[in-house]
Amino acid sequence: MNEDVLPGVGRLKTGGWLHYLANPARFLRVATPALPWLAAVSLLLCVVGIVWGYAIAPADWEQGDAARIMYVHVPAAWVAMAGYAALAVVSLLSIVWRHPLADIAAEEIGPVGAGFTAVCLVSGSLWGKPMWGAYWVWDARLTSVLILFFLYLGHVALIRAFDNKAHGYRAAAILALAGAVNLPIIVFSVQWWNTLHQGNTISISGGSKIYITMLYPLLISTLGFYLAFITMVVARVSAAIYERKTASALLAVAER
């Protein structure tokens, strides 16, 4: 079997929608009509969540107004981690199945994820100063998120570092997969070790510790941040596909 033939073009029976979307043309057919809607809904949810958190949600009993930083810090942190998980998934698709779209996605997820991680770090630092009394401490949670940021930056640099694009994709995919061990470390750091950062307020296994009037804006702005991430990545992946098409069209013209 020739692996250099575009894989994922109707030939793979397993894997579902990830394989289905792995064809760039098919991705564009789905993404192009979806993009305006994605952009509109994410903009709406971000605006509602941010305004609600900034001005309408009640002040916290312990932290007062400073707890409002939660409504941008926590969604940014969740998106930063989910973005890295997505990076690991597309890297796996790239290494194992050699989907061409997976490489493009990896290249475009990196900078966006790094941006959300930076927002998480900066907003957290601005939260730490008035509450803890320090902008930064080297506890396990903060350090592991800083490592996540550097993993993103390393990936962004590595995937663009090679003259031969395929080498960059391979190396960056290995980095992304290896770095994925950091994700459970971030999540459980506050349970495994004594940290200055507080424990998880909302856990998947139930047992949240947040009042409903503060939970709603948090969920809305989380959904908004997630959709904003997806919108940016889909727009950038689409743009990258067009750029490649342009390059091959110009090459065809030059060879004519």
């Binding site: 952009a39 903009l43 971000c46 941010i50 900034y54 107004d65 400073a66 409002r68 930083i69 941008v72 810090h73 940014a76 966006v112 941006g115 959300f116 930076a118 927002v119 900066v122 907003s123 601005l126 939260w127 100063k129 008035p130 941040f225 904003a228 919108t231 940016m232 727009a235 950038r236 743009a239």
Partner: peptide, 22 residues
């Protein structure tokens, strides 16, 4: 000032990154 800074950074990032992508 810290709340404004955190929200400012977040809104600025979302706006600029979204704009650049499109």
């Amino acid at each position: 000032p810290f709340i404004n800074g955190a929200y400012g950074v977040s809104v600025l990032f979302l706006a600029v990154a979204g704009w650049l992508s499109f």
